[in-house]
Nucleic acid binder design. Structure first.
Lengths: 261, 261
DNA sequence: GGATGTGTTCCACTCACCGGTACGCTCCGG
DNA sequence: CCGGAGCGTACCGGTGAGTGGAACACATCC
């Protein structure tokens, strides 16, 4: 990561044990295994403390200790999967994503917005899947993926504005970095219920996405997309299928949960 | 040696902040949202402390506070998905599970052993899926599922012995609760690389499973299964497909990671 | 050989954490 | 209308868990 725009971490707060613990857990972004020194560097916790807290986390089964560092344990994995909102979304969406995959045989994504990023909640792909930069639980900037553009288009006005005002990071030569162009695209997304991406996050990849809306049809709870290599994959030809799946999930979700939000 | 120490009863240790925090997080087993009083009841933490720690967890983005209680947040979900081992297993296995689903159109599971339970790491199912008792991140006893029997059959001798010595919980009239019979089944599993379940965890459901073995072909890192309703689903007819997928995952896994455990 | 990066242990200070106690609230049945 | 039960929240003095700097042991690499 570089200079980040992390909204999900409002306050590090390492003056308390809990703060340190969370900071340590949050330090695992891309690299799967981190040595103690790297943890100290990323979190700014004193070496002695980091050592002890990390050991405690291992004792509690949230971290594993390996010969060359620490890593998030399977206990952590298990805990995360119990998260209520994401789980019900996941369960309801899965059959639809499944259908979509069978129809297209390309990589299918389910993502939610967090801050100015999209988080990948589910990913379905076969052996010949396009080498997409997405990982389960991973993040990508909103503005450079189809999934993100859908979420951004339906986002609260202040988030949309904040993203547009900040400099748009260029991921590839084709990434949309002109705010004006992006705004026009977003408006089109709201209009059509579809967003496209042409090699804007990774060269060789393109993508269609559609929003999963709440019961009122206003806010986007999540979004789904289909991704494929630029050669064999024509996003337009799967647009209707993606949109159909998205509305299917939306209505099912609305039917199941008439109470939460 | 990978023989882990994780017991079915994870030591809470609530004499430290971190212990309390973990205890609170671990309290979320089945119910998605728990009121403070219930948390106090389950963990045994003093009300005052529970209140404060829970509030801290909310501040750190690991819990959400709703009108009627707390729940694991999406931040927790995100964190969990970053767990190294499970993620790479998940990513590698996914295409194979996908194939399996397309071939069978029945519910496909990927699970790992933890203590005397199996934890479901992945679950693929369509709209018409059998109402299985499994949930993503959920647990079931090893002895009453096909997935569990596979894992148990390849488990370290002491775990196997420990499970067999303890009384085997009866889930349905057909659950195998006789240790002698279970031993014979487990031996057959090692022999054939396949385990079956006939309405042993839930009436109306049956299941085939096969192990994902490590590079040496001894220990089971995980297992996969196909589950279907007793009426239309004949587990034997999918046995070879399941086993083929399992060995496919095993070899791919061995090829990718020659270093980690 | 020193210089640099690690992980680990030790220990006296101190402030974050503790939990009993008390208060306000909403829902009950009487 | 009122008591009581169960809930969430707030307060606060005492104290021991947590702190982090310093010192140590071990691998590398010039």
């Amino acid at each position: 990561m570089s200079a980040d725009g992390r909204e999900g971490a409002p306050a590090p707060a390492l003056d308390t044990v809990l703060g340190k613990a969370v900071a340590l857990l949050r330090a695992f972004t891309d690299d799967p295994v981190l040595p103690l020194a790297e943890l100290v560097r990323r979190t700014g916790i004193a070496k002695g403390s980091a050592h002890r807290v990390a050991a405690d986390l291992v004792a509690h089964g949230l971290l594993d200790k390996t010969p060359d560092g620490y890593r998030l344990s399977s206990g952590m994995f298990e805990l995360g999967l119990r998260a209520a909102v994401e789980r019900s979304l996941h369960e309801i969406a899965m059959p639809f994503l499944q259908d979509l995959y069978e129809r297209t045989h390309e990589t299918v994504h389910l993502g939610v917005a967090d801050g100015s990023d999209v988080i990948y909640v589910a990913k379905i792909g076969g052996h010949r899947q396009a080498r997409s930069p997405s990982r389960l639980g991973g993040r990508m900037p909103l503005h450079c993926t189809a999934l993100g553009k859908v979420l951004l288009a339906h986002a609260a006005p202040d988030l949309r504005q904040r993203v547009l005002e900040a400099p748009l990071e260029r991921r590839t030569p084709r990434t949309v970095v002109a705010p004006g162009l992006l705004v026009r695209q977003l408006d089109a997304v709201v209009e059509t219920g579809l967003a496209y991406e042409h090699e804007e996050s990774r060269l060789g990849l393109c993508c269609v996405a559609s929003p999963i809306l709440d019961a009122h049809g206003h806010d986007a709870l999540a979004a789904i997309s289909v991704t494929g290599p630029i050669g064999r994959f024509r996003p337009e030809s799967h647009a209707t299928a993606v949109r159909a799946a998205a509305t299917g999930i939306s209505t099912t979700l609305a039917r199941v949960a008439g109470e939460a939000t």
